[in-house]
Each structure stands twice: as C-alpha cells, then as structure tokens.
Design a protein around this nucleic acid. Structure first.
Lengths: 338, 338
DNA sequence: TAGCTAGCTGAAAACGATTTACATGATAAT
DNA sequence: ATTATCATGTAAATCGTTTTCAGCTAGCTA
C-alpha cells in the first residue's frame, strides 16, 4: 500500500502539513471551517498518523513497559489486566516484560526505556534493573517508575502493595482466635521480600498471643503447589503436628490441602489451611480456601495511575502506598481440634 | 539528562554517524580498528541507540501486538508467556492487548499496526479487527497476522490451534469406553468457534457409538465456573440424569464438580466430569480433573514463529495448523455406575 | 606506471510527524 | 484611510537513526 502521510492529506485538503497536525492534536487552534475540511479528507482517506514519526519529534513513545516475573501467576495476571485498562484509557500501550525472574531479562526490558521505546516502567520484582550510582540519590537516576507488590528496599521509589506484615498478622490472629496454637507456616523463597514480610507478621501474631516460636513449624516453600505438598509431608512427620498451616500463597495452600487429603486428613477438621492472595481458584477448590484477599485490580490501577501522573510531569510522593487487604474466611479453616 | 545520540558518539570517536550506525547494526562492514574504537566510546558513554529514530527510518517498530480476550484466563496466560519468549529472542517486544472481548478494543489494538507502532498481529479472537473489502481477497488487505485458538472463518489466514473437533470426539469416546451413554455437555457461548467445534466433536462421537443425541443433555455455559454450577443444577433436575458431564473448559468443569459435591454426589462414582484445556489447577482440584490437554507453550511458540517468518518476508502458507492434544486421564472420570 | 579492485568511510538524503517563527488577511480602532 | 490586532495559515527546522552513493586508500595486475 502506497503509504499515505500527513503531506498527502495536506495536499488533498489544500492546507499545510502543520495545519493537519493541529487538526489531529490541537484542534482548538484551527478554525471550524478548515477543521471540517481536513477532517473530511482524513476520514475519506482512512489516514492514521504514524506514531513513530510523532514519537521521534515529541520524544514520547506512548508505551509503558511492565516488568513482571511471571504472567502465568494469577496474581500478576489480575494486576496486569487492570494496568492495561488504565493505560489504554490514558492513551498508553503496555509492553509486556515477562521475565521468568531472570535478572538478565529484567535488564532487557528496562533497556527499552533507555532506548526511547517506553516512557516509564512498572516493576513487579525486587531488583532495580538500571545501573545506578549508589553514592547519588536514586531520584534523578531512574526513569518514571512504580514498583508494585515485591517491595524494593528504598524509600525514594513509589511503591504500591498490600501491607504484608499486617495481613499475615491478621491471618494468624484469626487462626489463634480459632483456638490454634500449633500454627505452621509455609513461606516463599528466603530472598523474596513479600515472604520475609509475611513471616514477620506471623511472628508478631504469635508473640502477641504469647505463643513460642517453633522453628520446626517454619518451612520454606517456593510458591509452587509442589513445594506445598512436600512441606506438608514434612509437617506430618512431626511428633507434634500443627493444627493449622498458613501458606504464604494460595498455590502452596492448595498443594498442602491436596496432600493432606491424600493422606486421609480432613481439612479443616483435622488441620486448618490458610492461604494468601485469594486467587480465583481459591474459591473453587474443595474445601474452599480461607485466605487473605489482595485487591488485584486496585493494585494494578493504582500503579498505572501513579506512573501516568509522573509521565504527565506531576510530582508523585515516593514511598509505600498500602492498599487494604481483607480476610476471606471460607471452609478450609475451623476451630482447633479437641 | 542531556540526551546523547549517535552524533555525539561519532564526534567522540572521530568518525561519521554512518560508521557508528554500522558498528551497531552491521559490524562486518567496519574495519576491526574503527570497530574497537567506536565500541569503546559507546561503552564508556553507555550509549543506547534510540529505537524510535531507527524505527522511523527502517519503517519497522520491532513490536508485535497480541490481541487476547482475557489475560486472566490461564489458557491465554500460558500462550502469551511462550509468545513473549519467542518474540524476545527474535528481538521483538510484545504489546499487550487485553480486550475483554470488546470489539472496540480489538480495533484499537489493531490500529497500532496501522499507526506503525507494531509490525504484526497475533489474534486470539474470532473477529478480524481490520476494515476489509469483502469483494477483494483478504490477503493484501491485512498486515502480517497469525490467528490462534479461536478460529476465524477464512482459509486465507494463518491459523494455529488444536483440532477441537477431534479432541472433543476423543474425549467423549473415552467416556463412552467407560460405559457411559448418558453424556451431558456444557458448552461455551453459542457464537464462539471453539465451542461450536467441540460440540461437533461430541456429536460425532455419539453418532459413532450409535447413541442418540438428547437435547436435554446439551447446556450452554459461558466458560465461567459459575455457569458450570448452574448447568450442573439443571442437569441434576433431569428425570434421567447423565452419568458423565463433558465441559468445554476446565473452569466450568471445576464449577460442575463443586456443585455436584455440594449436593452430595461423588465424582466420579456417581458422575464423571471431564474438562477441556488442562489448566494448571485441573491437577490441583479434588478429584483431579480428567481433561483434554492443550499444548499452550507450543501454540504460543508456533504462533510467534509463524508471525516472525512473515515479518522477515518469508511466505507462510495460510490455513490451519493443528497442534496435538492429549487426553489427561485423572480422577474425575470413571466407569459408568451400575 | 596506469588502471583496477576491494575494502572502508563519509556526506547527505531520507523516514513522518510536531512546532517555532513568521507571513498573510481580515477586522477593529483611530 | 491608516494602523494595530488577531486569527489562521505556512515554511522550515527538528527529532535520531539508516542507507545510498560516492570517494578515498591500498594493494594488485598488467
């Protein structure tokens, strides 16, 4: 197709390219008469302004890159969906950077903004994928950026998440209220901030209730159902079995339940199981999983909102912004046995 | 930051911009000596070529837009992940177009390629979001495009999917082998091609076994668990209840099982339940769901492979390309009762 | 030595929009 | 009638690359 550009339109409408440009991006500067005339030609020709040309001149790509460890994780998928909506309605497009948790790929996607292909970054991992000088303040070294979910340890960055400490504490307190005192925990990988924070919350809750911390009841999973199963096995081998198991995500909780049931245990009569995230399938599993609900849509929309504010040149206060979690009490938890 | 461009590098390295450009994109044209000299300057300055400038000149954005109805659906998420990998390793980035099944948003994302912001389209819905003249052959009216999963009714388009007819037929035949004759089906929405095709397969299987088609056993869901539940309710109200229920996706199958169990039925002893897709949670649910496995990764990687071939100027044979499904027999199906 | 070739390199013209600075014409004010 | 003002419109520069074309230098061949 013989490419049709702003010049062709200008010629056909008998105006200059500049006028056509104004019709497109600042119509208020053009008289009604010419406006209509030009618009008509644009319509007739089905002309679409070339975004690349415009981007080159304006030095804005209109893209935002979202760097996420795994799009296959329902938590991330839920967030991304909200992000995409927010971006689209503000005229931005989302470049998807699924990194499989690989630092190299995080860098690759971060580079897109250095190459002018994206104007800002949404970061859902706990590393900053930009070269920075540690002696300088971060601000000024980074492009517009919002960090979600997995916190980065810096208060110079805009961050959005649920208060993991408080959420985990609330979850465990609920179990304590139900009479449980031997409460096991299946964590995520050691180096993941969200897991560390949730562990902290767990400790606070136990301390608050005067329950001693038992290291045998703290097992490290890796956020997969498989790891949930193997942790559950280990817990069953214990002389003093826990009466409740709090898993740091739903996926592991589902794995734990699965294994428990296979071994003939009844959830929640023998053992209560609690998850974290409230993914869609938490409610579909049998018994339905009690869990901590994360407001995925709100997390996503807040992230994109804050990023777009930055892109518009508004100053956004750095620091953490907490979104409210809620406890979803379902059928997988109950009173402690006996 | 004072933007640093190819010209600055050229000056610093005492060569022309052209040479710098060659160092970046066709180093074989440059002598070793200047190559090293220029590379050194590039490294020292941390220079990244601006992609927009290059795109404008080459008329290639390096982006591919993926138009999908819902990223939250595990089937799509799995496919996208493979796509992203394939794209990245070929130097392309993925623009995510989550459309919520809205035609308007499909168009919006399709427009990105008209605006030069993307070079090709991966389409996972059943509408062509481009204005086309129905009297002309499609080829030539469309940009590079691959259609996945939900087929578009045209043999001029490159399509990748599982053979839904054969897969559904195989699934139902398996149930028939297990002695079932009253086999109900919970379909997707009427207008969705995948659902139509699976229904066809169901009919073939019944015909092949000489089982009469009973319209009471054909219920339309909408691919949500909720709809699975309500269809299951209707089936339980029937005078002659089915002994097996084949759902056109796992989500609905999980809903069906959930309701069956709530009503005190045992799956699979009273009723067998079969799904379609083999999402991650199919194996995690209790009982584990028997289902048709779709090779998500392969679907995604084939789609992106075929698109990139087109983008490289190779001619790709239009038409459907089938990828192999497999039956995953798990615990939710068994012999017909009595 | 002249003429060729091969291998590098550089100058300059694109690519398609936006935007600044300026020109024009119409209108209003004097 | 003359000038000032304002609303519109235009020409041209610009954004950062790539790529064509031509030029230059060596190294050969004849």
């Amino acid at each position: 197709m013989a490419t049709i550009g702003i010049k062709e339109i200008a010629t056909l409408a008998k105006v200059s390219p500049a006028t056509v440009s104004r019709v497109i991006s600042s119509p208020e500067l053009v008289s009604k008469k010419t406006l209509n005339k030009v618009k008509k030609v644009i319509d007739e020709m089905g002309y679409r302004p070339n975004r690349i040309g415009a981007s080159l001149r304006t030095r804005k790509s209109g893209n935002i890159v979202a760097i996420i460890p795994d799009i296959t994780n329902p938590v991330n998928a839920g967030i991304i969906r909200a992000i995409e909506q927010g971006a689209q309605s503000a005229g931005y497009s989302i470049l998807l950077g699924d990194t499989q948790n690989l630092e190299e790929r995080e860098r690759h996607y971060a580079d897109l903004v250095l190459a002018g292909q994206a104007d800002g970054v949404l970061l859902f991992c706990s590393r900053i994928p930009f070269k920075t000088d540690p002696n300088q303040p971060l601000a000024g070294q980074l492009p517009p950026l919002v960090n979600g979910n997995e916190r980065i340890d810096s208060d110079e960055i805009v961050q959005v998440a649920v208060d993991n400490v408080a959420a985990a504490k609330a979850a465990v307190e609920y179990l304590i209220d139900q009479g449980h005192t031997r409460i096991a925990v299946v964590t995520g990988p050691d180096d993941v901030p969200s897991s560390k924070e949730r562990l902290e919350g767990y400790h606070y809750a136990l301390q608050g209730a005067g329950i001693a911390i038992d290291n045998n009841l703290q097992l490290a999973g890796d956020y997969t159902a498989e790891s949930g199963k193997s942790c559950a096995e280990k817990l069953l081998l214990l002389r003093d079995r826990p009466t409740a198991i709090f898993c740091f995500n739903d996926e592991m909780a589902i794995g734990v339940m699965k294994l428990l049931q296979r071994q003939g245990f009844n959830v929640p009569n023998d053992v209560s199981v609690m998850g974290f995230d409230d993914i869609h399938y938490a409610d579909l599993v049998t018994p339905a999983l009690t869990t901590v609900h994360q407001p995925l849509h709100e997390i996503g929309s807040t992230c994109i909102k804050l990023l777009i504010q930055q892109l518009k040149g508004q100053v956004v206060q750095p620091g953490r912004q907490f979104l409210p979690f809620t406890l979803k009490i379902r059928a997988s938890t109950g009173p402690a046995p006996r």
